[in-house]
Design a protein around this nucleic acid. Sequence first.
DNA 1: CATGAATGAGTCTTCATTCAT
DNA 2: TATGAATGAAGACTCATTCAT
Lengths: 212, 212, 212, 212
Amino acid sequence: MAKRPQARIGRPPSSSAVETRLRIISVAAELFARQGYGIVTNKDVAAAAGISTGALYYYFSSKLEMYLAVYWTLQTRVDEAIAEAMGSQKTFDGRFRAILEVAHSLNAQEPHIAQFLGTARVDRIRHPELQDAIPSPPGEGARIMDELIEGAVETGEVIPKRRKQVEAVLQTIFVGLVDSQSDDLGRHRQAVDGLLALLDHKLLLPAKREAK
Amino acid sequence: MAKRPQARIGRPPSSSAVETRLRIISVAAELFARQGYGIVTNKDVAAAAGISTGALYYYFSSKLEMYLAVYWTLQTRVDEAIAEAMGSQKTFDGRFRAILEVAHSLNAQEPHIAQFLGTARVDRIRHPELQDAIPSPPGEGARIMDELIEGAVETGEVIPKRRKQVEAVLQTIFVGLVDSQSDDLGRHRQAVDGLLALLDHKLLLPAKREAK
Amino acid sequence: MAKRPQARIGRPPSSSAVETRLRIISVAAELFARQGYGIVTNKDVAAAAGISTGALYYYFSSKLEMYLAVYWTLQTRVDEAIAEAMGSQKTFDGRFRAILEVAHSLNAQEPHIAQFLGTARVDRIRHPELQDAIPSPPGEGARIMDELIEGAVETGEVIPKRRKQVEAVLQTIFVGLVDSQSDDLGRHRQAVDGLLALLDHKLLLPAKREAK
Amino acid sequence: MAKRPQARIGRPPSSSAVETRLRIISVAAELFARQGYGIVTNKDVAAAAGISTGALYYYFSSKLEMYLAVYWTLQTRVDEAIAEAMGSQKTFDGRFRAILEVAHSLNAQEPHIAQFLGTARVDRIRHPELQDAIPSPPGEGARIMDELIEGAVETGEVIPKRRKQVEAVLQTIFVGLVDSQSDDLGRHRQAVDGLLALLDHKLLLPAKREAK
DNA sequence: CATGAATGAGTCTTCATTCAT
DNA sequence: TATGAATGAAGACTCATTCAT
């Protein structure tokens, strides 16, 4: 599970500033998640955080920096959660199921994380400034994907020739989950359960007979 | 009011309204596909079409109308292609495979169609004006999904209780394909082949033995 | 979205929002008085107030709001002056004379008040936005007219049957004064004196004899 | 009474062009009367006349020229009507009454004439281009005013010293009538009747007694 | 730490005017 | 005569950013 950011004990100096910064990141995350980089204005964020637009510039040198702060905060949380899920399992099958469950429980706890990261993938393409500042398979994504597939090859669950196909299918599924299901927890659950059933060959059965 | 324009040019030689309109839609489709509704400016579109921003308003009453013209043009193309694919097959399995192939060949022919429609899904959420003007499962999407699933229940390929799961999984896969693979035809092919292999139980095999 | 403004200046030294707002209203009053709502541009007002067009929106949410601020500022001044004049007299004759004098002295003090309000009557008809925001007999006009005429009926200066005629004549005179004389104080004085003489039956005398 | 413009008998060449020109002037008059020079667009006029904006430029070299054509057409009609009214009477009293009646019957026949000319007085002030092209006491106004007052001095109805006052009062009344009453024929009648009663000392009577 | 007054570039949109046909 | 495709300047308004206080 993702660790919730807590004020560290025994660190009094300028604690209100730290709190304000965290508050900004938190409200900005929600706003960016819903509306994207281009549409959210500094004024929106400032108002939601209860400060003035000028004050924003004390904490971040630009709108872009603020966005990146949000990005790394959330992406780190996701990366940690996935790393934990990966570590707990050895087979591809186990890991994939664990990741799906982690994705769902993150979504249940903090819905705007997935929404933000889905949005970020789009904004990255749209805004050149973001393109240079955000990695394309996001966060640890590339490393995790590698580990997942290489592990699967080792266990024999994936034959080497199909590496690329598996990678593309996994990307498709993960992006699809984030982009099309993360705004509704119930549907997200259906999608996760459906995918698990698909792995068990229970979702799609052979046709009884051809319709005339 | 414009003061004294002293314009330099009137109607350019040999220009046809129909052609110009199509040219605008075509270049706008590409720009919107890459950058989205909010970021593409009228100036961008006009420049790409080789006309002035004012001329845009001769063809469309607003930026929104122009966007919608692009949307319906492309969405119609997709709907027709999918309807054809659906009609050629009776089983869910056959239909699903046909749709994947259609998706791929559309992508091969006109790459920005999928990019635009993926983008449109996001823009629809971000821009209230679009929300009112664009259907949420896009185009004929809702009807097609229904037909696909009800057909599958009739052939016994999907048990009634799993309807919702199948729907969510299909959404996940279709959105994932569009959003994560449509910018690279090679990867898109891998994804389609991977998904077909997944249906055949060839993509993911049981683990030989548990790694320690 | 604005790209990278690299602005040159922030808050100018020694500036007060209240003062700036008043300055804007004052210069806008003069401009609107002379040229009307449609012709005065935000740029004109901003330049006259010594600020940028953007700054205008710090004080008013739209050009319309700015116009209304001017309107109510001036209309209130007029309503108060007329109310005072009305209160000081009991007869219609006294009140009418008092109002004419008030009109003249307001004109002497702040010439653009009458010009603006004359202009506003026209702009109200031409611009639907204004129609909804400005009352048609302006300000307290309707109430004052009523009080004036009902008082006159009570004192016997107007017979009940002629109420409508008196109202129409008063409207004609007041509007005529504002529209045709308020741009020249000398002529305005002549008009006021002429009207007073008319009441005294001194302006127009019977013809000595019929010219052939 | 104003002569209605009729197609002259026996003048066939390019008669449709003449008709079109007249039609443009007629619809433009109505539009300008209601909305003023600045707000009416060439497109509005063209649409109302059933032609294209381009065609407008065959008949008038600019929007300004078109406006002036309307102005002189209407102003001439008014001047002629007033001249006729003036000629029929010798005393100031008779002439004034006759002018009021002419004003009213013109208003009854072609309501937008007065509306246009009222509007034109305002537009003249607002648009520098019009200022140079339209005379300030409109049309024959200056000459008529002179004749009216000099006649009154000769008949003894106005003493020489009050010339300016009478002029200012007449301007006030004529402008007031046009600006405040010409949009409603009933009210216009009330105003005219009220003014006639005022001349007869029947509109305003002495107060019976002072209210306490 | 924070505010709030201000900027100016950039957005969508309108409109008188032009000119090939 | 007339159309209709096109221009470009100008208008209202937005927004990231700056800076005196």
